[in-house]
Write a protein that binds this DNA or RNA. Structure first.
Lengths: 210, 210
DNA sequence: TGCATGAAGTTAGTGTTGCTAACATACAGA
DNA sequence: TCTGTATGTTAGCAACACTAACTTCATGCA
């Protein structure tokens, strides 16, 4: 398609596609998901309102691109977080959770888009794969901590519980349901406490949780 | 305003307001939040597209009414659930959680609206009160189980953790992130298992979780 | 009883949006 | 150089949120 070295001069101005995605991201963070319009994004990118349709079929398809980008960032952040701690440590799991929450707080608009987007990415195999990979980070860290294979049902269910907690905490936080008053413990404290509660303090010595 | 006994015959047709809220609820469940229009709701109610503005200032204001109704139902469901079990039992807490998840699965559109609605109900004292009351149900049940005052920090933080889990599980479920394959444990099993993990199996005998 | 008032409905109209069609431009390779 | 295609343009449609000005009708009050 484009040579990746870009930025011609004029009429065909570099790569609009990336600029549109960036514009949409900006608008989504400013006015919330669904609170943006293709027209606004076009104006931000300095093109006509019809130009985006040369790159995207639909409004949902633009959002899909934004979401896909977001998933990539989230995945990287989680992997990076886990990598900072020893394999099999509780801290590694906490780091994955913290990366998740931090992403939600940093880009609440995109985060909301990634989930709670009713239409669009139901059938998108692309996104489902990325989702599985991301969850796989948690599964892997949990399996290592519990000293069980990642395929173990116990590992899967516990990892899912951790995901539930972290997901809920993220949403409640960005929705302002949880006042971040100065007395409150920070996210790391929360995440590790829940990790201990769900996984047990000792590593792989307990009975299955279910 | 209106005598609550209603349904005159004609031009001023009973109470449009309630009918509009019902129509919006229906549309929201059908096409997702933001996937409805005042015009459609008007058509469903059999009035002109300008009529709603005699009852609601705004599109957000209609959604607000729908959300407010939803909060009432959620609150009642949770109270009813808790009431079915002995005060201070783990089952009572689980029942509150189950009611939450069940509500989300039954009315996913309204549920999504209640949270993740960026605009609107930030400043609405009305909704914030209802939210606090609803969370209060969990706090109360948790306090009873742990044998501590509801004002206790430990109770508050644990109850919040439970809320996080249940909230996350609700969203992940209605977003289809969790395949409900037949082997999987049901919501009750999940909720009680997490309750044990966060609150401890024994009642009020442990150290604070944080 | 008769009448003014105002709540609750109407039609008509404005500006924005999503999207399409038809046309214009410039970069590519032949 | 010439031509095709990717990428941009303008023009236009239908749907929407919302407003303004008019109509209807129920009710309180003389």
């Amino acid at each position: 398609m484009h040579p990746p070295t870009v930025s011609k001069t004029a009429y065909h101005h570099g790569d609009l596609r990336a600029q549109l995605v960036a514009a949409v991201r900006e608008l989504v963070e400013l006015h919330g998901p669904e609170g943006f319009s293709i027209a606004q994004a076009s104006r931000l990118a300095g093109v006509s309102t019809a130009a985006p349709y040369k790159h995207f079929k639909d409004k949902p398809e633009i959002l899909l691109a934004v979401v896909s980008d977001g998933m990539d960032r989230l995945y990287r952040n989680m992997v990076d977080g886990v990598a900072r701690y020893p394999l099999g440590s509780l801290d590694a799991i906490s780091a994955a959770g913290l990366a998740y929450v931090t992403f939600a707080k940093t880009e609440p608009g995109v985060f909301r888009l990634m989930f709670g987007l009713t239409d669009g990415h139901e059938g998108k195999a692309d996104l489902e794969t990325k989702g599985r990979e991301t969850f796989g980070v948690v599964i892997g860290a949990t399996a290592a901590y519990l000293n069980q294979p990642a395929s173990s049902v116990d590992v899967q269910e516990r990892a899912y519980m951790l995901w539930c907690f972290v997901h809920g905490h993220s949403f409640l936080t960005i929705d302002g349901k949880r006042k971040d008053t100065p007395g409150r413990p920070d996210d790391w404290t929360y995440v590790t406490a829940v990790g201990r509660g769900i996984l047990g303090a000792g590593g792989g010595t307990g009975a299955p949780i279910l």
